[in-house]
Amino acid sequence: MVIGADNVSLTFQTNDGPVHALKDVNLTVERGEFVSFIGPSGCGKTTFLRAIAALEHPTGGTLSVNGMTPDEARRARAYGYVFQAAGLYPWRTIAGNIRLPLEIMGYSKSEMDERVKNVLELVELSGFGKKYPWQLSGGMQQRASIARALAFDADILLMDEPFGALDEIVRDRLNEELLSLWARTGKTIGFVTHSIPEAVYLSTKIVVMSPRPGRITDVIESPLPKERPLDIRDTPEFIEVAHRVRDGLRAGHGDEL
């Protein structure tokens, strides 16, 4: 078990009273799984991902990452985190940006160069190392930020709507690349999205969430094979899983719709 959530609750205290971002969330993620969190805004999917990364702290229940508390896991550099925006430093080259976590973690110069070269290949950005972020398209920038998260080779990759700001054509291509990257590296991936096709296409496990309070309404183990060409989205199996996700989302909304 890589990630374990046992009755995790998280309440924000605001001026308008407490907001229950997460309530009694139970989930187990095994090594090598690709888990998507899907739901409407306010369902706590990003909060849950941030709690795993120790960027938020649960107010109830227990959460474990690699058998440690999330904060211990963070200090052990157990995960790489990809944000919605690429967030590359404009004053660093692409290679310089990827080197950032390696510098902070104190890798040697030769080790850094080696790793930068490897992850640039992994995200198909070889030859772009000396470019500055403004010289790259949005999709390429996001690939560079994934490379940055992969550079120090953590077992877990947490991604918070990484392709949310990109157009659908670029998104399809990056989804395909992400799957092949996952197959090659065998990492455990937590992936937040609000796109049903994206969640179904990528995941081995789909966690459907709903808001007020943020909670899990359904966990779907995908029956799709590990090898997934893009046109798998037209198969009956795919459409059936997508249906079940949609049903889960609708059930979660309940009386509101």
Partner: peptide
């Protein structure tokens, strides 16, 4: 977001 990113690397205040 940029502060969070450094936090995930467990960067020191000096870094």
């Amino acid at each position: 977001m940029q502060m969070d990113l450094l936090h995930t690397y467990n960067a020191t205040p000096a870094q």
